[in-house]
Design a protein around this nucleic acid. Structure first.
Lengths: 230, 230
DNA sequence: GTCTATAAATTGATAGAC
DNA sequence: GTCTATCAATTTATAGAC
């Protein structure tokens, strides 16, 4: 079956090309946004013509959708599975932010596109509305699980806290992109979580420092008892 | 001096036109961003031709700079003067967020442009770098003043808190723009400030309820005593 | 101060050869 | 699968009439 062999080869090559295009598309949409980023520019980076690119993705909108899918694939692995502890899911958020600091391109993509997609006519508008609902919901559920287990102050509002946690992560990204030296995103997030979840050990899972490290053991202490009772 | 009279009349008309253009520019840049927003679109809204618009602002970049200046003029009045109390300056931030919720166009402008201007080549890049430095610095100074007066927990880090306050404000804007019903920005900010500045009365200055007296001495009260001394 | 006309470049997408 | 050629729109900006 020469045909079968050839076809497999062709498919593999096509898949690789598509991947190249997606990664170039991610770069361009990150810095120029969707509307101002041109598929010609993307094609140039891959080393093919603009018409050649459109053979793999029929329209510019299709390409955008595929780029967003790619980003989701990359990120999905970083979230803890649904059956994970509430605390561990919160820790997953910190891990996510730590990871983000290593991939400025992905952060830029989200920052630029989410702002651009704020207007309802944008082709990625629904995507971002859905995604925010999901992320905030995921975070709220994690906090609710912790609250049910008595791991949070009694007056914590999980819905509100979830919104602000996500908002903080987003806002820090803008400052970080504008001046990377000025902000340690994960550090600020940890501090905030320490404020609304006093006494919680956040360094747990995939933290940076396996050893004693710079973060004093004080963070581990049972300051939990002091949950503000006014 | 008919000439003088005519000239004054002309100037006044020109100033009004410029203002019209700026406001239309604000609208367009808000929804489309700078790069994708077209001066033709802006000219159409004003009811003049594109060449007519370029008589008032020589280039698109000039128009952008003028739009950002206009926004600053609008916002400057909302910030408390420098000699104001640290606490009152923090209250000013809440007032600012309350005001923002009434002018979605301005919020959109900042949200979209700040993300777009994240890349160093953007014509508004320096503007946003400077502005973030200023806002974060202003907030940090306010917190430092409060800390010096014993009005904050002893372990508060003013620089970090200032960064996160500004980040929270920005991040909430994205969620609010994507789904206005889901977020009360001022409410979330107040809650956050209540967390890092426990025992502080934030409703003070330009709050919603005018009856209780706008500047009752109670706001200055030494509720500072309850700060956790650990 | 505003217009028409136009330049010069760039865009997304299609047609058809190879 | 990739190319060249091309189309129709759209962009910022300029020139010059009124």
């Amino acid at each position: 079956m020469t045909e079968g062999t050839r076809r497999r080869g062709t498919y593999a090559k096509t898949a690789a090309r598509r991947r190249e295009i997606l990664e170039a598309g991610l770069e361009v949409f990150s810095t120029m946004g969707f509307r101002s980023g041109s598929i010609r520019d993307i094609a140039d980076r891959v080393g093919i013509s603009q018409a050649g690119l459109l053979h793999h993705f029929a329209t510019k909108n299709d390409l955008l959708a595929a780029v967003l899918d790619l980003r989701d694939d990359i990120a999905r692995d970083l979230f803890s599975p649904e059956d994970e502890t509430g605390l561990n899911r919160v820790r997953g958020l910190v891990r996510m932010v730590e990871y983000n600091a290593s991939v400025p391109g992905l952060v830029e993509l989200y920052c630029v596109l989410s702002a651009e997609a704020t207007t309802p006519e944008h082709p990625a508008h629904d995507y971002f509305v859905d995604r925010y609902r999901w992320v905030v919901g995921y975070t709220r559920a994690a906090l609710e699980a912790m609250k049910a287990g008595g791991q949070t102050p009694a007056d914590l509002d999980p819905a509100s806290a979830a919104r602000t946690i996500v908002a903080l992560m987003d806002g820090l990204q803008v400052q970080w992109l504008l001046d990377r030296g000025s902000v340690d995103m994960a550090d600020e997030l940890r501090r905030y979580l320490g404020c609304i979840l006093p006494g919680t050990d956040l360094a747990g899972v995939g933290a940076e420092e396996p050893e004693a490290g710079e973060s004093r053991a004080g963070t581990e202490e049972p300051e939990a008892g002091e949950h503000r009772s006014a």
